[in-house]
Amino acid sequence: MPQRNHRAAIVGTGGIATAHARAIAASGGRTTLVAVADVDLDRAKAFAQTWDVTRAYAGLGELLREEQVDVVHLCTPPKLHAPQAVECLRAGVTALVEKPPTLSLAEFDTLIEAERGSSAYVATVLQHRFGAGALRLRRLADAGELGRPLLATCLTQWYRDEEYYAVPWRGTWQSEGGGPTMGHGIHQFDLLLSVLGPWREVTAVAARQARPVDTEDVSMALVTFENGAVATVVNSVVSPRQTSELRFDYERATVEVEHLYGYTDDDWTITPAPGQEDVAELWAQGRSTVPSGHEGWLCAVLDALDRGEKPPVTAEDARRTMEFIAALYASAFTGERIRSGQITADSPFARSMEGTGAPWEKVRNP
């Protein structure tokens, strides 16, 4: 497969931008960071100096006018993702968008429409799909080596204090779109969905337990899948012992991973069912020391672009995950079980993840 050098820019030079710059630097010359932008031009210039980039701009528009770039890594606050991605697509530039990609399903559908009218693509950064353990699990599951999926658990139990939420755009529906369900747990349950496939129904609760925010700080969901599997999903920012865990119980084995912000093969374990010890041998094949992270995701993006294909995760892939989030909030705030496809364009939960309003807001403002 012929490879070319992709000219890249990073917009938003806060903390997560460093992971993107490292991934670009580790690409082996397949992509080059040629420009950066930030509303704080001094911060953009400092970031550019750190990564040996000659040009820094105060905004995306100026960057797109002045530079010839192939891809833009959007590392800005969530409320900017959709309008900036649309701006990139209209300029014929592929947008690689940090999570959450939009604040709502309605916003996400504007991205899909913009992509259809563009020569470029939009892709969401959901890097845990691309670690060696996740790739191996999907390969074995798809080949039927593990038997039927029966049960799964998905935990994102993190800790974010009040200082974390002192950043103005955090913890609000208007600028972040939601709480840990949107901004933290999305990595884990996106991996869950990528393994178990289409979900069918969601029953959920959400609560504001401890943080001075508008959104939830805890959510829990029971999920059924089209293949018959059932799962529990927990998202939290109030858990002092932090962990990110996934467990899949198949007919022939239990497969588990426990980590925090990224995993290696050492974080995965497999427990064969009695008499199914050959599954462990299959799992041991092709072990890797490469961690999950932006490097593996970016490599997959570049592979797809070199083939002239949509980069992973596609807009359609990400929309299924966003629909799951909307369904979780809809169930939590209405007390109803929500089916896949139930949240149509006229639903308040399509226009905003807050939908009809969080229960704690109704108590405060009867």
Rank of each mutant, 00 (worst) to 15 (best):
G92I: 03
G92P: 11
V93W: 08
V93M: 07
V93Y: 03
T94Q: 03
T94H: 08
T94Y: 00
A95W: 04
A95F: 06
A95L: 11
L96C: 09
L96D: 01
V97S: 03
V97Y: 08
E98R: 03
E98C: 06
E98I: 01
E98P: 04
K99G: 02
K99R: 06
K99Y: 02
K99Q: 06
P100D: 02
P100N: 01
P100W: 08
P101V: 01
T102F: 10
T102Y: 00
T102C: 10
T102S: 11
T102G: 09
T102R: 12
L103C: 05
L103H: 02
L105K: 11
A106F: 01
A106T: 04
A106Q: 07
E107I: 00
E107N: 10
E107Q: 12
E107V: 06
F108K: 09
F108V: 07
F108W: 09
D109M: 01
D109C: 09
T110Y: 04
T110L: 05
T110G: 00
T110W: 05
L111K: 08
L111P: 02
I112Q: 15
E113P: 01
E113I: 00
E113D: 09
A114L: 03
A114K: 06
A114P: 04
A114N: 09
A114G: 06
A114D: 09
E115L: 00
E115M: 07
R116W: 08
R116D: 15
G117Y: 00
G117A: 07
G117V: 06
G117M: 07
G117R: 07
S118R: 00
S118Y: 05
S118H: 00
S119G: 13
S119F: 00
S119D: 14
S119C: 09
S119H: 12
A120Q: 12
A120T: 12
A120C: 05
A120W: 03
Y121D: 11
Y121W: 15
Y121G: 09
V122Q: 02
V122H: 13
A123S: 13
A123I: 06
A123R: 13
T124H: 13
V125N: 14
V125L: 15
V125Q: 13
L126K: 14
L126P: 10
L126C: 11
L126S: 10
L126T: 07
Q127Y: 15
Q127S: 15
Q127H: 15
H128R: 14
H128T: 06
R129S: 12
R129M: 09
R129A: 14
R129H: 15
F130L: 05
G131E: 04
G131P: 13
G131F: 09
A132H: 12
G133T: 11
G133I: 12
G133D: 07
A134L: 10
A134M: 14
A134G: 14
A134W: 02
L135Y: 06
L135N: 11
L135T: 11
L135G: 14
R136T: 10
R136C: 04
R136G: 03
R136N: 13
R136Q: 03
L137I: 09
L137A: 03
L137K: 13
R138L: 08
R138M: 05
R138N: 11
R138H: 00
R138E: 01
R139H: 04
L140H: 12
L140A: 01
L140G: 01
A141L: 04
A141S: 15
A141E: 08
D142A: 15
A143P: 13
A143E: 11
A143F: 13
A143L: 10
G144F: 12
G144L: 11
G144Y: 04
E145T: 12
E145D: 14
E145P: 08
